[in-house]
Each structure stands twice: as C-alpha cells, then as structure tokens.
Nucleic acid binder design. Sequence first.
DNA 1: GTCTATAAGAGGATAGAC
DNA 2: GTCTATCCTCTTATAGAC
Lengths: 216, 216
Amino acid sequence: MPTRKTDRDAVIDAALELFRTQGYHHTSVADIAAACGLLKGSVYHYFAGKKALAMAALDRVIADSRQKIFGLANDPAVPPAVRLQNLAEAVERFFAGREGGCLMGSLALEVGDAIPEFCDRVRLYFDDWKAALASVLEGRYGAARAGELAEDSIARAQGAILLMEVTGDPAVFRRACRDTVALLDGATETEAAGTGRSGPAKDTPGEPRESWQHAS
Amino acid sequence: MPTRKTDRDAVIDAALELFRTQGYHHTSVADIAAACGLLKGSVYHYFAGKKALAMAALDRVIADSRQKIFGLANDPAVPPAVRLQNLAEAVERFFAGREGGCLMGSLALEVGDAIPEFCDRVRLYFDDWKAALASVLEGRYGAARAGELAEDSIARAQGAILLMEVTGDPAVFRRACRDTVALLDGATETEAAGTGRSGPAKDTPGEPRESWQHAS
DNA sequence: GTCTATAAGAGGATAGAC
DNA sequence: GTCTATCCTCTTATAGAC
C-alpha cells in the first residue's frame, strides 16, 4: 500500500477540514494540532508555518480534484455526454452534504486578494474545473461558447453550494448538477443551450478566452 | 436632510466595507475604528462589542436591500417582466465591480453556523431575495416552480459574484443577470424555462416551500 | 517526532481622564 | 464623545528537553 497516510498528510487532512468549516483565519494552529492528536508545537516540525501548511493543503486539493473529479472529463474512450455526466455526478457526490462547502470557493471570498499565493491556487483550481467542462462541451458549442457555459455552470454550482450551506436543503445543488448534465442532452445544437438563452445567441463573441490563469 | 449620517452610521459603513473585503474574523475593531477616524476604544461607545456591531451592520444591509433592490419587485403598477428587469439591473449595478462581493454570501461561508445570530440574518436576506424573484415569476411558472427558479437564479448570481472575485472578469455575472431577465422574455410558458431544462419539466413538485426561514 | 516552556504580538474589551 | 492606559486572552512561532 503506497497510499499509506503519513503524519504530514494527517495534519493536512485536519487543516483542510477545519479551514473549510471554520475559515482560514479563524482556525488556529492549535486547533489543527488538536484535531490530529498533536500539540501545536509539533505542527511546526512538518510545516514552516500556518501559511505554508495551507498552501500544501491547497496543493493537495488541486491534485486530488484533478485526479478524482476533473480527470473524468478526459477519458477519450467515453463519449462527451457520458463524460459530462460522470463529471457532474462526481461533483455532486463530492459536495453534497459536505459541511463548509467548497474550500476553494470559501477561501476566495474570505481572503480576497490579500494572499497572492492563495489566489494563484484558487485560480488554478477553477481553471481546471473550467477546462474539464469546456473540453466536453466544445464539440457541440465551439470553444468560445463552451467556455462561457463552463463558467456559468461553475458559477451555478458554487452559488448552489453556498445556498445549501445557508438553507440546509441540497435541492438547489442537485438541480444545478442536473442542469449541467442537460447541456449535452438534446440532439440539435441550439435547443439545449442550457443556462437561459434560447435561440442562436447573438452574444458578442469577444475574446475567446480559454483560461483565467494570468498570474505568474 | 433627515438622511444625515450619524457617527454610528459611519462606524457601520466602515465595518461593512471591511467585513466584505477582509472577512469578519480578519477585521479587527481597531481596523474599523481607523477606517472612520477613531481609536478602537471609541467604537465601544456605540456598540457593545464586535459582534453587536456586526449585527447592526447586517440589519442595515437587510433594510437597505429591501428598500433599494428587492422592493423593485413589488410595484403593482409595473408588469412582472419589467419588475424582473428592474430587479436584475439593480442587482447587477450593486454587485458589479464591488470589491469583496456580497457580504451576506461571504459571511455565510466564512462563519458557517458558528454564530446563530448571523445565520438568521443571512437567511433573512436570501429569503427576501427569493421572495422578490418568486413574486414576479409565479404568474408564469406557478408558486412551486417560481420558487425553484428564484433559488437557481440566486445561486447563479452568488456563484458568479464569487467567480468575478477570482477572475476579475465581470462577464460571468453579467450573463447571470441577463439570463435571469430572460426568464420572462418569451411568450409561452415552457419555452423560456431559463436555467437549463428544455421541455415541460417533469420535476417532482415536492413541497411548495415558499420560504427557507425556519429559525426562530 | 513529540513534548514543555516561552517569547512576542495581536485582538477584544474595560476604566477613567479630558 | 474621544482619548489613553490597561488587562486578559488567544495566536503565531521558536528553543530546547526527552
């Protein structure tokens, strides 16, 4: 079993859970230590400080999400509609009932742009998400419109996760996931244009921006 | 001018701005005091403590939103489609380019359910928002479906505000507002079903929940 | 690798001078 | 109504014993 959890991983686990449910600033190193059976002094054996620990945690979220969720959009042996469904179901399983919602989303709102290293990782995460969705949508919608629909779908999912936190009712989020899958349901090109517009969409094409990533 | 700002209001103004951009826990009383030209000891002349200040601030957000934004959905002299457009435009003006996004949304994710008084106010705010949207939608969609569409629209707006924070690009949010207006664009009942599904929607009616408010 | 002890500072809150 | 001074707690971080 090469996947044996090291103590360092246990600290990251505890940190992720607490950051998600209590926020970054309101979680102390002592909290994290206690959650994995250590005293706060011991945490500094593994990490240079709270910020370094958080960055390691974010890096693991990014890696895990790529492997277990967003990667589902990449299997070339599976038709796009099924890849989209697999992706949406994975997202739904991951976030439904998850106390604290999406760490990346919560962190984006909590720290704003005060900690650039966090911003970069949050952007990377959402960029991965967008790329995954766009890759299965662009066959039907074209790159530019697929990118927009991907953003819209992520926005709806994030907002639904937020509302789920507020109301305790997962129905909003389930509808968001189902409507995302429905983007590839119909047969014709224009009819399934999911998030609102009917008709061929006289939206300004603008720059066909494929990525948000513009940081170093 | 009866709308002359009192000093107390100035403290609330500063607190709202800082809570929104820096988060609740990461904003100190000294920060708030400095932002309105006081020292931190003086803030306690107006408020019993940081938490009481925050609650007064949230109450003002709720009152202001009712009056200036959600209230636009209530004018009986205006047809529903126009009321929806006014509402969506007010939402767009209020949040577009607003650093820190939506305080209520950010607060919901930051504090989770740790501070019940905050939760109640956040729920109240989103309940107002939902009621406003549902009131203009129920003529066409019926109460139950109008409530769902209202939730979906709020989710999309909140998520778009979040993404706007991450990417700096307001396009996601503008699309969200436009698609909300489009919910009352078409003439027939089924064709304009905005947030995804095409067709008559075989969704389970479930409980026609009108409100999320279930706290005391 | 985990502990104790401690430094150094930030943050919430109070008391009292002016 | 604002300031200064102070108290107390929590938090980050380091040093060194075991």
